[in-house]
Simulated assay, not measured.
Amino acid sequence: MDSSSDSLDHNSGVGKHHAQFEIGGLLIELCVSFWKSRSLFVAAKLDLAVHLLDGSKSVEVLAELVGANKESLFRLMRALSTIDIFEQVSPRVFANTPISHHLAVNRDIHAVIVSEGNDNNYRLWESFCDTVKSGKTNSVERVFGVPTMWMAMQADPKYEEDFKKSMTALTNFKVPHLAGLYDYSKFDTVVDIGGSEGILMAELLRRYPNIKKGINFDTPTVISNNKRRGLRHSDDERYHDVGGDFFEHVPEADCFVLKQILHDWNDQCCRDILQCLYRSLRPYGQICIYDSIVERESPVYGQACWVDLHMMQLIDGKERSEAEWRDLAESAGFKVDKLIANELVVLTKKHSLQ
């Protein structure tokens, strides 16, 4: 009997078992990752990191400050400390780490976490299996009893407020980069479709003095709320706020900008929006669409794929590949003129609307 052969077989079996154990552990870790995301959300909602900006504190002091149970709070912070969110510097005493400090001082990131991690978003994913099986989502109706997310937000002011803060935060984060991806100096009139508070339009006017007129276009409710809240991000006389419906009519322009608008809608709705823009786009004008281009070679391919699932589940929207952008453009009377950095699609008119 060859003892060395037996030993090799044994070692091989142990190694295979260990590999399977690691794979199993990884799968379980992925499955329970929501424990971590929910814990991060609670830490952000309670603003624990802000209370540690002036130094470490005991759980007892923190519990008093945020109105929490001291034992539950200790267990939360202990768990978060294992992933470098907070540090337990002595028994039951915690301090900020670089990560939790960032959560405290970067209020844009804080706003995104509070919005994306809220209870409603978890409830909206409960029917995801049904969506995958049927190809249709009814998550909003199941959770809120209304057909669209926009109606749900109107019925829940706090939900809407958190969402808008999150969108503003993401815009603040991305606008300097996005505004520099394309040269808008050749356009006389630029309209930002679904521009919300007008942050992107303000940046475009600041960067491109050749633009003669910049219009921030959104629903009449959004525009009136901006005025009521005193939200105007530009004192430039070229800047204008206009309310309307991008399915019906938009102001005439040389360039329309859509930042993360079309991924909210299915193909038919996008076609209707683009055809509406077609009617108001001047000859030789362009449409600049800031949305993901889902291609495997993209450095943000993984992120785009996951955002696509979120769009599918919540609002019947989607992220699109290059081929899908080209098909959509063609169906609405446009052609793809440029694809830039996997996040900007530039359209021009074909000779006639098909």
Score class of each variant (00 low, 15 high):
residue 312 M to C: 12
residue 179 A to E: 01
residue 43 A to M: 11
residue 139 S to H: 10
residue 343 E to P: 09
residue 84 D to Q: 01
residue 338 K to H: 12
residue 242 V to Q: 04
residue 69 N to A: 02
residue 352 S to F: 04
residue 254 D to W: 02
residue 27 L to I: 12
residue 352 S to P: 01
residue 188 D to W: 07
residue 7 S to Q: 08
residue 32 V to R: 06
residue 131 T to W: 03
residue 233 H to S: 07
residue 220 P to I: 02
residue 263 H to E: 01
residue 127 S to T: 07
residue 58 S to V: 02
residue 349 K to V: 00
residue 96 N to H: 01
residue 105 V to M: 09
residue 29 E to Q: 08
residue 13 G to F: 08
residue 341 A to P: 07
residue 74 F to N: 15
residue 313 Q to H: 02
residue 73 L to A: 12
residue 185 S to Q: 03
residue 142 R to K: 12
residue 219 T to L: 15
residue 200 L to C: 14
residue 98 P to N: 04
residue 286 Q to R: 14
residue 175 V to D: 09
residue 336 V to R: 10
residue 303 Q to H: 05
residue 202 A to R: 05
residue 49 A to H: 06
residue 128 F to A: 08
residue 295 E to T: 08
residue 153 M to I: 00
residue 318 K to W: 06
residue 308 D to A: 08
residue 291 D to I: 01
residue 62 L to E: 12
residue 196 S to H: 11
residue 238 R to H: 12
residue 349 K to D: 05
residue 237 E to V: 03
residue 242 V to A: 02
residue 101 H to Q: 09
residue 346 V to M: 01
residue 76 L to A: 14
residue 162 D to V: 03
residue 301 Y to V: 04
residue 106 N to I: 00
residue 325 W to D: 08
residue 297 E to W: 01
residue 316 D to H: 03
residue 272 D to L: 14
residue 110 H to E: 14
residue 264 D to Y: 05
residue 255 C to K: 05
residue 314 L to K: 06
residue 290 Y to N: 06
residue 113 I to A: 04
residue 34 F to C: 05
residue 46 L to M: 14
residue 223 I to A: 04
residue 319 E to D: 12
residue 305 C to A: 08
residue 152 A to Q: 00
residue 176 P to D: 13
residue 24 G to R: 02
residue 146 V to M: 10
residue 161 E to C: 00
residue 168 T to E: 14
residue 11 N to A: 13
residue 9 D to T: 10
residue 178 L to S: 11
residue 153 M to D: 01
residue 4 S to A: 08
residue 262 L to G: 07
residue 302 G to Q: 05
residue 120 N to P: 00
residue 342 N to A: 11
residue 250 V to K: 11
residue 174 K to A: 10
residue 292 S to R: 11
residue 144 F to S: 06
residue 303 Q to C: 05
residue 331 S to I: 00
residue 48 L to N: 10
residue 188 D to S: 15
residue 31 C to T: 07
residue 257 V to Q: 13
residue 148 T to R: 12
residue 70 K to T: 04
residue 186 K to D: 10
residue 184 Y to T: 10
residue 134 S to E: 10
residue 47 D to T: 01
residue 225 N to T: 14
residue 296 R to S: 13
residue 73 L to N: 03
residue 249 H to T: 09
residue 342 N to W: 13
residue 189 T to C: 11
residue 325 W to E: 04
residue 11 N to K: 13
residue 169 A to F: 03
residue 57 K to V: 13
residue 76 L to H: 13
residue 179 A to M: 01
residue 84 D to C: 00
residue 343 E to V: 09
residue 272 D to A: 14
residue 36 K to T: 15
residue 133 K to F: 04
residue 161 E to Y: 00
residue 192 D to M: 07
residue 95 A to E: 13
residue 96 N to P: 02
residue 1 M to V: 05
residue 5 S to F: 01
residue 203 E to S: 15
residue 85 I to S: 03
residue 331 S to H: 06
residue 127 S to C: 07
residue 85 I to Y: 11
residue 48 L to F: 05
residue 334 F to T: 12
residue 145 G to K: 03
residue 55 G to N: 10
residue 127 S to H: 10
residue 274 L to E: 01
residue 306 W to Y: 05
residue 95 A to R: 15
residue 284 Y to M: 12
residue 100 S to K: 03
residue 148 T to F: 14
residue 177 H to F: 10
residue 55 G to Y: 08
residue 289 I to Y: 06
residue 285 G to V: 00
residue 274 L to W: 02
residue 66 V to G: 09
residue 313 Q to E: 09
